[in-house]
Design a protein around this nucleic acid. Structure first.
Lengths: 145, 145
DNA sequence: ATAAAGTCTATAGATCAGGTAGACTATTCT
DNA sequence: AGAATAGTCTACCTGATCTATAGACTTTAT
């Protein structure tokens, strides 16, 4: 399961993507509209800014806005930012690789082989899931109602 | 990431599967060979027994052994037993379904749509990963060396 | 009887998730 | 200049969960 932090981050990003181009949007508005505890959201947005995904403007008329294109922000990146590796085992992650202590031989580990495949497919699907893609799906689901 | 508990459970099960038919194997042997803390392993095996996957025999000559066929024990079931749902969101799980508090409309949620697809594929792959399958993969990896 | 082996109950340290509080800094408008 | 607005930073708290460990108890084979 992803953490609430990640879930809130995704919701906030989709919200900002929908209003992309309208200029800065204040934290309180995002918090209210997306039902996210305000102070908690603060630190989330700060992280997204540090990661180069969002930018902010201080003072009156300020707020947060997307720095990158909605096509280029995907769920895999956001999840990794807040929850760390997506894989089920440390020995099949790319950036956070760690050997399993109790493992006898990684090269011939059947368990690892399975989890590598799972991770590969998962990352593939999550990379495709950009903010634009999410919004596109939402619109498609609405037309199906 | 899966918990150590789940990882240990999988290792113990694969170990037992390899020696299926040899009669009961004592906790200490599994703990030693698989490098699992003995007392921790105890409670894990007890859970697997309660779930109907393992059986045990007390007293001298006792130990644990598989109750089900190695084909019928898969990673999806084991993971669910110890770590709960496999999905990334509570709203796309089957058995543990829960609505996302902050969600406005589940029916048209693009985020949910993506995570549903991810979960579907993941469960599919993990269901195929039976103990027999894991051992088969291990043997194949050995021949490739 | 005795040794072997699983079972049950309790506990403990460490880490982390989720959230709150408040002071501080930068910017804009009048 | 000064008030209002809005993000930034530091610190803290509470409860849950993970990863074990300890020890007494029960069952069984010889």
């Amino acid at each position: 399961m992803i953490s609430k932090k990640t879930k809130y981050a995704i919701n906030a990003l989709v919200f900002l993507a929908k209003r992309n181009g309208e200029g800065p949007i204040i934290i309180s508005e995002i918090a209210d509209k997306e039902h996210i505890p305000r102070k908690f959201l603060e630190s989330i947005l700060l992280n997204l800014k540090k990661a180069g995904i969002l930018a902010s403007k201080k003072g009156k008329g300020g707020g947060y806005y997307l720095l990158k294109d909605p096509n280029e922000i995907n769920l895999a990146d956001v999840m990794r930012l807040f929850d760390g590796p997506i894989a089920f085992l440390p020995c099949v992650t790319y950036k956070y690789y760690e050997r399993c202590e109790e493992c006898k031989d990684e090269e011939t580990c059947g368990i690892r082989d399975v989890f590598f495949e799972v991770k590969k497919k998962t990352v593939e699907l999550l990379k495709q899931a950009s903010l634009s893609e999410i919004i596109k799906r939402e619109n498609r689901l609405i037309t199906l109602l």
